[in-house]
Design a protein around this nucleic acid. Structure first.
Lengths: 148, 148
DNA sequence: GGTATAATATTGACACGTCAACTATTGATA
DNA sequence: TATCAATAGTTGACGTGTCAATATTATACC
């Protein structure tokens, strides 16, 4: 019954989310928000489009999450002073602090998840997940093997 | 940047969902509904609580998905005639037919995902996912190793 | 039997994801 | 320059998940 890969993925994914629920609440994050702040913190100011592309999430979702984060003071939408008018998104000091604490919790969750895995198993696990993703990606983007 | 297991899981999970989007639409399923109908089809009539327990999903979500499925005629909420009053959920013939077609698409998605994986790799992959889930589960439920 | 407690299901409010429609701005071209 | 097409962002509607509050129904106990 529970041997499909879909169920296995579903369970692992949601178990992590469950595990991190209290931390999300404590830090004032919605479930999809830490990844955005984390990215912005590492990458520096960028456009919303870059976020929705990187995470392969609908721009609408990004827009709303940023509004929420902005209200909490974790992020600001800024206007590029140089030339263009498109707005850039930037992390605030409060956002940096929150995401720093988030990383600890997130790492802790990963440690729990991989408890009992050897280094070799971790590497293989990561590789399998990446391959699974790439397989879907190839199917989606590449409808033209174009043998010529 | 993208080497965290969370991102790897997130991407694999959502890539599958993306891939199956058109099939969901075609069969009139919401994204979380096929698993319920699939379960009901295999298991036979059962209570909602069993569904929310099995999938570890909030009963509220199950209730609403069933309402939606009932509207589409894939499922009925029945009253146990024997003795108890609690309502049982049951798949309809239309639901059976839809889920049968769903299984083909779902299997196809799994084939895509695992393309290039040997049998041994598939087995290991499944095992890793199950272990990851169990690690979270142990952390959650078992706060009492109780060495005595 | 009658009452207290527990379990079940539903509903409301919110967050995240989808798609689709709309606005505004950028950029390219006539 | 003026127009037209492409891109970016927002908003609306909907489905799925969370938690919290509310009936309603079972069960247990006196």
């Amino acid at each position: 019954m529970e041997r499909s890969f879909h169920m296995l993925l579903f369970r692992a994914f949601h178990a992590r989310r469950s595990y991190l629920g209290p931390s999300l609440k404590e830090l004032g994050f919605g479930s999809g928000q830490p990844k955005l702040v984390d990215y912005l913190d590492r990458r520096g100011p960028c456009r919303q489009r870059e976020l929705s592309d990187y995470f392969e999430v609908d721009p609408a979702a990004v827009s709303r999450m940023l509004s929420s984060l902005e209200k909490r003071g974790y992020v600001v939408r800024r206007v590029d002073g140089a030339r263009r008018r498109r707005d850039l998104v930037e992390v605030t000091p409060a956002g940096r602090e929150a995401v720093a604490r988030w990383r600890l919790r997130s790492q802790e969750a990963e440690d729990v998840m991989l408890r009992g895995f050897t280094e070799e198993e971790r590497a293989r696990f990561a590789q399998y997940l990446a391959r699974a993703y790439e397989n879907f990606r190839a199917e989606r983007g590449g409808d033209r093997p174009c043998t010529s």
